[in-house]
């Protein structure tokens, strides 16, 4: 096994290759089993047909004939991404300050924490009818669900971060003449950032779940809308291409957060590495 370790684990290309073995194998088997028509009673299109469907969806001439999806991929991907960005941004705007307040200030904890803990067990899917009733079949409903879904992990992780701060950091800051607001912005916030980023990553994942669910029901555009619409008209090739697209966007947005985290939290990685 020594040669395998050095070939597949100790260098970047090898690692990527190792990770690709399983998906490539699955796709190959799927492709091989497809034409016989035996796969799920012939419902599932083969990978090459999914690829073809995606190419038409992405690059085909828009508004042509019987294919309503042709050439609309980018627009729909952007619709969904924009909704996630708006909802996620809103969640950060509320979640981080509130989390800091709850973690830092016992009065805020007493005032807000019980409400948050009572609302949190209600899944965002259960908010769908409420959201449609209040916001109608419009963007706002989708953004509301994303913001709500992403809010919980962000506020809870931020609270954890603000609570777990080394008491001596606060004492040191006060000893050096810091005022309460300085302590909050210069000590509590940076010290909470590692937990905040954990919350952001979980929250973003929930944001993508929320956008797809809400677009399937409450909006008439976006990848979630196309997903459900294509299913209704029996275009399973588009359904699979859509699923892959959602996965790709979720993956890329998570990578973006990680990149920002690595940039902002260089000190923290260094510290964990030392420990």
């Amino acid at each position: 096994m020594k040669w395998a370790n050095s070939l597949l684990l100790d260098n970047r290309a090898g690692k990527i290759a190792l990770g690709l073995i399983l998906p490539v194998l699955v796709v190959a088997l799927w492709q091989a089993a497809g034409p016989t028509g035996s796969l799920f009673g012939g419902v599932l299109p083969t990978p090459d047909r999914v690829w073809l469907a995606w190419k038409v969806w992405a690059f085909g001439p828009p508004g042509m004939g019987l294919n309503p999806y042709s050439g609309t991929w980018l627009d729909n991907a952007l619709f969904s991404t924009e909704r996630v960005a708006k909802g996620f941004g809103t969640a950060i705007l509320f979640g981080v300050p509130l989390g800091i307040a709850i973690g830092w200030w016992r009065l805020a904890a007493g005032a807000f924490d019980p409400t948050i803990q009572m609302l949190r067990p209600i899944p965002i899917t259960a908010w769908l009818p409420f959201s449609i009733a209040v916001f109608g079949i419009r963007d706002m409903g989708s953004v509301f669900l994303i913001a709500l879904g992403a809010f919980y992990p962000i506020v809870i992780n931020t609270t954890q971060g603000a609570r777990g701060i080394d008491k001596n950091w606060i004492r040191a800051a006060l000893m050096m003449g810091a005022k309460p607001l300085d302590v909050l912005t210069r000590v509590v916030l940076p010290a909470s950032l590692p937990s905040i980023f954990t919350g952001l990553r979980v929250g973003l994942g929930i944001g993508w779940t929320a956008v797809i669910v809400s677009e399937m029901v409450a909006v008439k555009s976006g990848l979630g809308y196309v997903l459900w619409d294509a299913y209704y008209v029996g275009r399973m090739d588009v359904v699979i291409a859509d699923m892959a697209s959602i996965g790709l966007l979720g993956f890329l947005s998570d990578r973006l957060i990680i990149a920002i985290e690595n940039w902002v939290l260089g000190w923290h990685r260094l510290q964990s590495f030392q420990a």
Binding site: D166, N168, W169, R171, A172, M175, M176, G177, V187, P190, A191, L193, W267, H268, Q271
Partner: peptide, 16 residues
Amino acid sequence: GPDRGVVFQEASLFPW
């Protein structure tokens, strides 16, 4: 206050 400077056992520097 800064008129009484405290040195802590574990230094307690701000790691960021």
